[in-house]
Nucleic acid binder design. Structure first.
Lengths: 236, 236
DNA sequence: GGCTGTGAATCTTTTCACAGCC
DNA sequence: GGCTGTGAAAAGATTCACAGCC
């Protein structure tokens, strides 16, 4: 991730977060969830949605784990990090559990995503249905190329990257996605950070440097294929 | 990793491989590289390319690690799994090391990629420059929608998914990329496997089941954003 | 009887720290 | 002196296996 990956996965596989919080002083009993657990929790949520849409009201670690593609023991361990929301001998209530996971993952609020780079990938991402349905709204799409600026992509008009700060402020974006060439990525990343965005998902094929307190994840498509190629060579 | 994934991935975060080889009987001294190492090796390769294009002929674990965004100790450990290609007190020869890593990762051969699903994402992937430059050639783009079939995307015409088997055979594709909606993914995955493809990269937001011996990696864009959202909530 | 929650055991990955060599 | 290569230690993640509860 993985990448993540990741993972980072992992990679997975290809992914990572910089900026640890130096031990909460907040009153609430906040739990720091391991990265690997976070990745799986989203799969559980999806599996729960599927079950719910099939009319299931109750489930078990075995069924859920099967659906999410993991082993039941680790599923139970993951869930136990959030608290005890199951019933021994019975299982979990689908709706309850989904609610608890959502809350723990911060999906209560609406996240506003700005996509930097309106190339093929940026445009594909801005139309990706999987985002809208999970509380992520794409609020801006920016690019530097004059021939692209002003063109429409879905409901959005591509904005000039020169107006980055104004656009980020006007839209209150709190997540940025970098879908730009490697050569431009670090410079744009710095700008985005300077505008106060502290969560960045990068598709650029380079290792970006970000200050502590900013969290960065990477998805590296060529890396994914290379790992596949390695396995293909060795298993094939 | 996860790259995101990945991790991953990882991957990475969001990524994984199914199908372990049950201990080689091949004569060659094949090394099984850990998943996490594989993800990093590709970063080292990239860093080496950068250095090479800057005219550097020699480097050190410190410099390379910095460039790749990892810690020097693990870089040296990763490289030591491939053999001893450095010189104590001196460092590594850029070109040599790049060559060794490429070989170890199976990048000697040309990989032929079929993209299943010619939606926004599929089209973006088929035009992604990062593939061509790393030994991956997109040889086919398939879809089920009549209004898309036959249209041109770059040099490729979109083929009818009904001809999957014929197309995969004609192009000798050895890697498939699934960029289709979740609902269609398992069915298409099965078909691709039935056609003999044993390496699959999936962007579908579900857990796919594949038989042993097939290796599957996933990149899950919504998961990446959700992990960011979690950190944003807790660090911000 | 069946399924959760969890300590203990195992396995994997990362980091440390230093011997070995140029 | 400097940098690699690598055992040993530490940290982290997964799996086992079973006590506890319905």
């Amino acid at each position: 991730m993985s990448q993540s990956t990741m993972p980072t996965p992992q990679e997975p596989a290809a992914s990572g977060v910089s900026g640890q919080r130096p031990d909460a002083m907040t009153g609430s009993i906040e739990r720091i969830l391991p990265e690997a657990t976070l990745a799986r929790l989203t799969q559980y949520l999806r599996a729960l949605n599927t079950l719910q849409s099939q009319g299931e009201t109750r489930t078990s670690s075995g069924v859920l784990a099967q659906e999410a593609g993991v082993n039941p023991a680790i599923l139970r361990k993951d869930l136990s990090l959030l608290g005890s929301y199951g019933t021994r001998g019975v299982g979990y209530m689908v709706a309850d559990l989904a609610q608890h996971i959502s809350t723990a993952m911060g999906l209560g609020q609406q996240w506003r995503v700005a996509i930097i780079g309106a190339g093929n990938l940026g445009r594909a991402l801005s139309g990706y249905g999987g985002f809208q349905s999970r509380g992520f709204e794409v609020v801006a799409l920016l690019d530097a190329a004059p021939e692209v600026i002003g063109s429409r992509v879905g409901k959005l008009a591509v904005e000039d990257i020169k107006n980055l700060k104004a656009v980020l402020e006007a839209t209150s974006a709190n997540i940025a996605v970098l879908s730009v060439p490697g050569a431009a990525a670090q410079e744009l990343c710095d700008q985005v950070v300077a505008c106060g965005v502290r969560s960045i998902l990068s598709f650029a094929p380079i290792a970006l440097q970000v200050p502590t307190g900013v969290n960065l994840r990477k998805v590296d498509l060529a890396t994914e294929l290379q790992i596949l190629a390695y396995h293909a060579q060795n298993l094939g």
